[in-house]
Design a protein around this nucleic acid. Structure first.
Length: 471
RNA sequence: GGCCCCUUAGUCUAGCGGUUAGGACGUCGCCCUCUCACGGCGAAGACAUGGGUUCAAUUCCCGUAGGGGUCACCA
């Protein structure tokens, strides 16, 4: 088989969203799997909505996920330019040829008059189709016009989708489509086809909201006399209510997941499993995915985005990190939260304890807050554990710690055990009050670890404060 | 509404004519235990529905219902 050339062609009208990221990922995986080429093309012909900021945001998202492109913005390539607005002459040339060959024609109908017809059809509960008024009219470049493709009225166009199987579209549901606007801008279907042809794309993989465009595009390929590529339409990602994923369902901006403390590997892992599978395996590295990816395993059904599962996947990735890596990656989130953490031994002790307890960097920060800021004493925890009965126990722990040189785990374990034994109580009777005094709450890593993280001075200070509080 | 696509537990999925319908997230219970996690064990929970085809349908075909997508001088 010839090496695949695939592309991801976002329009820069906003940030890179979850769905787009998955489309890009599948394309990238396919290209890498077969030693093909992954092209990034920016479809910015909607001048109203396209922005440079959005272009940057999309590139940033791609880089964050680790999806590098072989041709496109920044890297160039032999089929450039890769911004559609820089390719207007290409579309014009192709459109002119179609007009010359009688496969397309200039249409002088105003938008307003067509809207009237549209309304009328709507009123009669009729399907509106452009009536072909300008078919056969002579070409007059001096009048403002659009270019329409001559679409057959009978028959049907079908294709074999790599994920959905054979899909057929009757021509009577189509119309003489506009391929070039009055201002010379190509319409989506035309621009995409001309670019895919000139960029030698041989497999088009995109969201299945494009299924209905495919027949129209195939008609354009045929009018142009070019080979039709293969198609793969990926099912949509839905929200919990099974409607198209949107802001209402939570964050759809890929990069906001970075800010929420997710690892890019986790997003890739989760996104690929939403619609693709390899037996019972849940966790995949990018390398594994490159080796295993296959359209055959891509499901045809839309999937609901499940934040809980994403969090679980993220946890799997997080806990697999070494202490050093985990600390380094978590640090920016501490800083963002305004906590004075540094990449030091203390941070490493903290992340070592929190890797099993926190599923994201943000959760790590939440759970580690008490080691960098004054404790926020939970009232229920205080009334239950910082009691008169607990006072002598805390005092004993305090004095024990005061008498120790360094905060070594074995010594701390001995201390807490001795205090409990001396009082004839279980370890919990000592540990819980101490935990509340030291962290402000009832949930934390092992009490010895907490003391070690806090260090001698801070431990004593917090214990004294608790003692004073009890009175 | 027309057209197109989809349909295994709450969710993601395995399955590709004969299985006690498997795994994962989540939920619940028990164990471990200084709390919380982690881990271990266990439980509840699915083939939308009606017809065919077949010795045999979750699996193949058709209808119905439900869901999604799309019907622009947007992409």
């Amino acid at each position: 088989m010839t090496a695949p050339r695939v592309r991801f062609a976002p329009s820069p009208t906003g940030y890179l969203h979850i769905g787009g990221a998955r489309t890009a990922l599948f394309n990238w995986l396919y290209a890498r799997r077969h030693g093909g080429t992954f092209v990034l093309r920016i479809e910015d012909t909607d001048r109203e909505r396209s922005t440079q900021v959005a272009v940057e945001a999309i590139l940033e998202g791609m880089r964050w996920l680790g999806l590098d492109w072989d041709e496109g913005p920044g890297v160039g390539g032999p089929h450039g330019p890769y911004f559609q607005t820089e390719r207007l002459d290409v579309y014009r040339a192709h459109a002119d040829r179609l007009v010359r060959e009688g496969k397309a024609y200039a249409c002088y109908c105003g938008k307003e008059e067509l809207d009237v017809l549209r309304k009328q059809a709507e009123g009669e509960k009729r399907q509106f189709r452009y009536p072909g008024t300008c078919r056969g009219k002579p070409y007059d470049p001096s009048r403002r016009h659009v270019i329409r493709l001559v679409v057959p009225e009978t028959g049907a166009t079908s294709f074999d989708d790599l994920v959905k199987g054979t899909i057929s579209t009757p021509h009577d549901t189509l119309q003489d489509e506009v391929i070039l606007r009055g201002d010379g801008m190509p319409l989506y279907n035309f621009g995409a086809v001309v670019d895919d042809v000139t960029m030698e794309i041989n497999l088009v993989a995109r969201g299945d909201d494009h299924v209905n465009n495919t027949a129209r595009q195939i008609l354009i390929y045929q009018a142009l006399g070019y080979p039709v590529p293969a198609f793969a339409h990926l099912p949509m990602i839905l929200g919990a209510d099974r409607t198209r994923l949107s802001k209402r369902h939570g964050a759809t901006n890929l990069m906001s997941y970075r800010d929420m403390g997710f690892m890019p590997q986790a997003l890739v892992n989760y996104l690929v499993r939403l619609g693709w599978s390899h037996g019972d395996q849940e966790i995949f590295t990018l390398q594994e995915l490159v080796e295993l990816f296959d359209w055959k395993q891509v499901g045809a059904t839309a999937g609901v985005f499940n934040p809980d599962k994403l969090l679980w996947v993220n946890h799997q990735w997080l806990r697999a990190l070494s202490d050093d890596e985990l600390a380094a990656r978590a640090l920016p989130h501490f800083t963002a939260a305004g906590l004075p953490a540094a990449d030091d031994q203390k941070l490493r002790l903290i992340v070592r304890q929190l890797r099993e307890r926190a599923k994201s960097f943000v959760e790590i920060v939440q759970q580690a807050r008490c080691y960098y800021a004054p404790i926020q004493l939970d009232e229920k925890a205080r009334s239950k554990h910082l009691t008169a009965e607990a006072r002598p126990l805390l005092k004993a722990v305090r004095d024990g710690v005061a008498g120790m040189e360094a905060m070594e785990l074995p010594a701390l374990e001995r201390l807490f055990a001795e205090v409990a034994a001396a009082a004839g109580l279980g370890l919990g009777k000592v540990a819980q009050p101490a935990r509340v005094a030291l962290t402000g709450g009832t949930a934390s890593p092992g009490i010895h670890d907490v003391v070690q993280i806090l260090g001698k001075a801070e431990t004593l200070a917090r214990l004294d404060a608790a003692l004073a509080l009890i009175g």
